[in-house]
């Protein structure tokens, strides 16, 4: 397992896409995530690291050795795509053993390693099956075994589970997390799924339009997003424009009380996390509040997603479902907020 360092990496795709990464370091044994909207260059970055795409300039280092010009077959970096890319004319064991065979490993070793790898991904006994006889999840497990059996210096995964159905996706996340902890594999994992990011990553980078906007632990980024784009992408979708005067942030039609740490700044935006807001029906509470009208309610697995109109603006609020507590559209409600949980940008 090894560390990966990227310096001044640049790749241009005509007519208009450019990937530019000034510096990125992934530590040995780290579960590193990359998250960003579709088309922002995540796949391109992984292809550059594996050598499938050549950069226009810049350097890629693996474990203190520069590999920018090394061909992909000599890098021993595993890459798992969204689709499993199994060789259709080979059986499961031939697929898994392919890399070892190419390296001309001893036959007996190959056999043992294949069985071990298949056991790791929970496919013991599937040796003689052809890919056409496997389910989507099983295929992706074979792809995983095929990469792991080579003991790669790093394992890159490009939205590997996004084609699977939700239950299977959770199961696969569990599996990869377990394998990563057992084997201390360096992993770079791409997703555009926030939930996946928060469950899996030790550290992550948020990308947009070919650039890295911020790196850090998922929680750190969530609590201190560097700009609106990052915040928005992480699901902080109450972004109010305005200005600070005294203890208050003034936005269109209302003002919000600031906590002690937040005063005297020149912030232009105030951000409210949707789950940090609480709707109350009138009972008293000491916290500061806003008043508004419920516009829209949707229910999703244990949570209400509620839109409340406050003056001319809409706030998105996530509330845990509680028996006996109901929301009705059109109702006048109070929205409680924590001055300390406010983000100013």
């Amino acid at each position: 397992m090894a560390s990966i360092t990227i310096k001044n990496l640049y790749k241009y795709f005509p007519p208009s896409f450019a990937l530019q990464i000034d510096e990125l370091m992934i530590k040995e044994g780290e579960f590193f995530g990359i998250i960003g909207p579709s088309g922002c260059g995540k796949t391109t970055l992984l292809r550059l690291i594996t050598g499938l795409t050549a950069p226009d300039r810049g350097e890629i280092w693996l474990n203190g050795r520069e590999i920018t010009k090394t061909p992909p077959e000599k890098r021993n970096i595993g890459l798992i795509f969204q689709e499993p890319r199994l060789f259709p004319h080979f059986t499961v064991e031939e697929n898994v053993g392919f890399g070892l065979k190419m390296k001309k490993s001893r036959r007996r070793d190959i056999k043992a390693k294949i069985d071990e790898a298949l056991e790791m991904v929970g496919l013991t006994g599937f040796n003689r099956r052809y890919p056409s006889a496997l389910s989507g999840g099983q295929k992706q497990r074979v792809a995983l075994a095929r990469a792991l059996v080579l003991e790669p210096k790093a394992l890159l995964m490009d939205e590997p589970f996004s084609a699977l159905d939700p239950e299977l996706r959770v199961e696969m996340r569990f599996l990869i997390k377990k394998l990563q902890q057992e084997k201390k594999i360096t992993i770079i994992f791409i997703t555009h799924d926030r939930e996946e990011a928060f469950t899996l990553f030790e550290r992550m980078a948020v990308m947009q339009e070919g650039k890295i906007l911020q790196t850090g632990t998922p929680l750190h980024i969530y609590n201190q997003p560097q700009n609106i784009k990052v915040a928005n992408f992480l699901g902080i979708n109450n972004i109010l424009p305005g200005y600070i005067e005294g203890n208050y942030f003034y936005t269109q039609g209302f003002r919000i009380l600031l906590g002690a740490a937040n005063q005297n700044q020149t912030a232009k935006y105030l951000l409210l996390k949707p789950e940090s807001l609480k709707i109350v029906n009138g009972e008293e509470d000491a916290r500061p509040f806003l008043t508004g009208t419920i516009e829209e309610i949707t229910f999703q697995t244990g949570f209400y997603h509620i839109k409340v109109k406050v003056q001319s603006q809409s706030l998105n609020i996530i509330q845990k479902y509680q028996p006996g507590k109901n929301f009705t559209p059109g109702a006048e409600v109070k929205i409680l907020y924590h001055p300390e949980e406010i983000i100013l940008l």
Partner: peptide, 25 residues
Amino acid sequence: YSLEEQAYLLGGNKSQTFFYITLPQ
């Protein structure tokens, strides 16, 4: 061609990849 890429990623050189992956297709 995604299969050829896959073969390179698994350490196959040009001739191995042609022989085992491209030719069968």
